[in-house]
């Protein structure tokens, strides 16, 4: 068994008395595509917040790196330091730079030095340009590269944000509800794209759309979160037939907290 790339151990987080995450244990291995599902309020977004440094856990450990000698404690780092380690995130509601052009959005996300002086004297190399062109084609925004991102449709913004994630080329991609606001066809393509990324990258995908989950969780593991902790973990079919999971999903009226 290799050492996990990301290990989350006994993590808890409380917001004003509300237990968003309780004793969560979670391990992500290199190259894995993990799907996380769970009812509203299960703590999925908080889970991402904890990994990306947007929130700090009350207790527990978050370690990043396959080598236990050099692995980093994420709780000691802030947002941009975590990002620089190679953890990229696509937010639930598309967050792109609305006043910037599509192209500039990608330039900002492009992998490379992030310092003040590096930015002052930064020049795009031709390989960079080619890569961005590639990404634009992948996310099918080639024709709208000069558009202000704020003018894009909801689905296009989702694509742009995925493109930004690609430009950044992180080790781990945290993808929060990528299919929201997309047509069936686009959803399908998103699934294919995510599957193609697995292997070279590690991914955690949060999703509600079961058809989409079924598509991307072909080979990988599905984790079910419920009330801030792991309810069950396994292949899609196993999870789907699990009685606890069915109960949570069908009778969740009484648990809907947020």
């Amino acid at each position: 068994m290799p050492h996990p790339l990301l290990s989350v151990e006994d993590v808890s987080k409380t917001y004003d008395g509300f237990k968003a995450i309780t004793n969560l244990n979670f391990y992500l291995y290199e190259g894995e595509l993990r799907t996380v599902i769970g009812p509203n309020g299960a703590g999925k977004s908080t889970f991402f917040d904890l990994i990306t440094g947007r929130a700090k856990p009350d207790t527990g450990k978050l370690d990043f790196g396959t080598d236990p000698q050099t692995s980093q404690d994420l709780t000691l780092l802030n947002e941009y330091e975590i990002n620089r380690l190679g953890i990229g995130r696509k937010f639930q509601t598309p967050s792109v730079y609305t006043e910037h052009s599509v192209w500039d959005n990608l330039v900002l996300s492009l992998k490379g030095p992030r310092g003040v002086f590096a930015s002052l004297f930064h020049r795009l190399s031709s390989t960079d340009r080619d890569r961005l062109d590639d990404i634009l084609r992948t996310v099918r925004l080639d024709a709208k590269r000069h558009w202000k991102a704020g003018l894009l449709a909801h689905g296009e913004k989702q694509w742009l944000e995925i493109g930004m994630l690609l430009a950044q080329d992180p080790k781990v991609l945290l993808v929060d509800e990528p299919a929201a606001g997309m047509t069936d066809d686009e959803t399908d393509r998103t699934g294919d794209l995510l599957l193609s990324l697995a292997g070279r990258h590690s991914l955690i995908v949060i999703e509600h759309d079961m058809a989409f989950v079924k598509q991307i969780a072909r080979n990988g593991v599905v984790t079910v979160l419920h009330q801030g902790t792991v309810l069950c973990e396994g292949k899609f079919d196993e999870v789907q037939s699990d009685t606890k999971v069915r109960e949570v999903y069908l009778g969740r009226g009484k648990h809907g907290t947020r």
Partner: peptide, 26 residues
């Protein structure tokens, strides 16, 4: 410059810039 891009991105959505790996404080 790219600095200008970051600067204006900070104006429009500073937290997003943090999650793109820029130390906005600097």
């Amino acid at each position: 410059t790219k600095f200008g891009l970051v600067q204006q991105a900070i104006r429009d959505g500073e937290n997003r810039v943090l999650f793109s790996g820029y130390a906005t404080m600097h």
